[in-house]
């Protein structure tokens, strides 16, 4: 009975997180041809990074490849819904953003998508968390979370990290 109560309590907490706080495992299933990523549509080099879409939705597109993320730094606004879209042209990678619940696999042939809201500003480390080859440990990127007032899209709606 006590164990049953404990299990019920944990189930209630899981349901609360999922249904009320909207914390769910990313479940996007969307295919893409990994051989032509760089040639067409969404994941061409010019379209990578953060963009404010026509409806005001902030979308960040990143290609994970052996052994780097492109771009290596992305800017996102704090306290606003952000959609991360990632894919891979080569092998299975994975990402997590430190200090947040963002965590997904990046699988060639599929687009991984995570919706989130970054609440703390600052540079967050985004390492590859799936062993992808000899350079895996050098594969990381930065998610720069800036306050809304510092998030200034250009005329195309794009925002990039300042080059230093």
């Amino acid at each position: 009975m006590v164990v049953g109560g404990a299990v019920a309590l944990i189930f209630a907490a899981i349901l609360y997180a999922g249904l009320v706080l909207h914390v769910n495992p990313p479940s996007n299933i969307e295919t893409i041809d990994p051989k032509t990523l760089h040639l067409s549509a969404e994941f061409t080099e010019a379209n990578l990074g953060t963009k404010v879409e026509a409806g005001g939705q902030v979308t960040t597109r990143i290609v994970a490849t052996q052994f780097a993320f492109d771009p290596q730094c992305v800017v996102v606004p704090s306290n606003e819904p952000v959609t991360l879209r990632l894919t891979s042209p080569d092998v299975i990678h994975g990402i997590l953003v430190t200090g947040t619940n963002v965590n997904t696999m990046v699988i060639p042939g599929y687009v991984s998508q995570v919706h989130t809201v970054f609440t703390k500003t600052g540079d967050l480390l985004m390492p590859c968390h799936e062993f992808c080859g000899f350079g895996h440990s050098q594969m990381w990127a930065t998610v720069r979370v800036v306050p809304r007032e510092s998030f200034r899209p250009d005329s195309d709606g794009r925002v990039a990290c300042e080059k230093s």
């Binding site: 997180a17 706080l21 914390v23 769910n24 990313p26 619940n101 965590n103 995570v114 919706h115 989130t116």
Partner: peptide
């Protein structure tokens, strides 16, 4: 231990989906 991780680590890390 479970509720410590849930309330102190998991929930403050924000929503994902």
């Amino acid at each position: 231990g479970w509720f410590f991780v849930y309330f102190v680590i998991f929930i403050p890390r924000g929503s994902v989906g």
